[in-house]
Design a protein around this nucleic acid. Structure first.
Lengths: 139, 139
DNA sequence: CTGCATCCGACCAGATACTG
DNA sequence: CAGTATCTGGTCGGATGCAG
């Protein structure tokens, strides 16, 4: 996998405005945006923010997620150091997931986003309906 | 255009727990998460937060975005009522984009997220490197 | 219970060519 | 300058079957 040293594309001739400028393709902070770009990540972190949860609990509470996607999301979060995985050597196996210290810091901005979503999705839907109605007329 | 027909899975047999519960697949707030799930959206809104910008300016400042993706992103944001599009009937044509009132409310949580990204991507990269090193050992 | 491996269809996104 | 149209490879993600 390796994150390869992307050779600075010629496109970036401007000095970088800030230390971590997401607008430069080469900037690693882009990877972080990809992280939240995964729609499941937001939901998983949201649940783990409440406390430790088992695999099957996550699966049950996140409506529509497949086993594959949940595993994949958790692996990624683990790799990023945001989620901790604990395997209890019992039979049957019990696996628990929880946020790490770093993971907990992500909760704050994520909650803000979630609240925005809840507060504004009504407006968004209305705007969509109006827009679509107008588009249909123009045909 | 795409807008994807949301397939209502039979899985949604539960009544929706809360007015806007993102954990229910049927809840429209999921669509809002999809919105920010688009990695370009965050960057476009970030630039427009500074003020009006032309198409080519956006294209230039967002390193790596294709013309097609920029158009698509802007159309989506326009449909959602977050971005306003103004066409100046000149030659050559000039088109300007700006955030609507609703769009500006999105800037706040998005900025928070961007700041988190800038502040923590170092930790994330470190965690990844350690994780990968450990994985390589186990082989 | 928790996961990995595989197959496979659907959608995404880049490249290219053309228009007002 | 600011798009639209189309073709296509690549990726995502669900379903299924198997394993520790």
């Amino acid at each position: 996998m390796v994150t390869a040293s992307v050779d600075q594309p010629a496109a970036v001739r401007l000095s970088i405005p800030e230390p971590g400028d997401p607008y430069a393709a080469a900037c690693p902070s882009r990877r972080v945006l990809d992280l939240i770009g995964d729609k499941w990540t937001v939901l998983v972190v949201g649940i783990l923010a409440e406390g430790t949860a088992r695999f099957s609990e996550l699966r049950r509470r996140i409506d529509g997620i497949s086993q594959k996607m949940l595993t994949q999301t958790l692996r990624m979060l683990e790799r990023d150091g945001l989620v901790h995985r604990t395997v209890h050597a019992e039979v049957p196996v019990r696996v628990e997931y929880s946020l790490t210290e770093a993971g907990r810091t992500l909760v704050v901005p994520l909650k803000a986003l979630q609240e925005w979503a809840v507060q504004h999705f009504g407006d968004v839907l209305t705007a969509q309906a109006e827009h679509d109605a107008r588009s249909a007329q123009d045909e």
